[in-house]
């Protein structure tokens, strides 16, 4: 990666690091390169499991408490 990457923060050049020009000048540099084989997205799995648990919990609340728990509303 990083081919042709150029830093451009406030006119200063910080080597060939990959940066965002909308980022602050002192953003942390990329300090290692991870290939597809070296990278195992365990953190992503953990976040998604947390999200899934929240989803299930909220759905159970919505269905059993809010939906089934409320009586009919009759107008008129």
């Amino acid at each position: 990666m990083n081919e042709g990457m150029v830093s451009a923060d406030d006119g200063a050049t910080h080597g060939d690091l990959e940066r965002s020009v909308s980022a602050p000048p002192d953003q942390a540099d990329v300090d290692r390169t991870l290939s597809h084989e070296e990278f195992d997205p365990k953190g992503t799995l953990a976040l998604i499991l947390v999200y899934f648990a929240i989803l299930v919990g909220m759905w159970v609340f919505m269905y059993f408490v809010e939906f089934l728990g409320n009586g009919l509303t009759v107008v008129g």
Binding site: S20, A23, A28, D29, D31, R32, K42, G43, T44
Partner: peptide, 30 residues
């Protein structure tokens, strides 16, 4: 999220959730 985590790990992030701290949070685009 996996792509962002890849960025965080390349920036030196570690841990199950600790990698979130290594991300460029001061960048409005990010």
């Amino acid at each position: 999220v996996a792509s962002v985590e890849h960025g965080a790990r390349q920036r030196g992030g570690t841990g199950l959730f600790g990698w979130l701290r290594a991300l460029p949070w001061r960048d409005p685009a990010f």
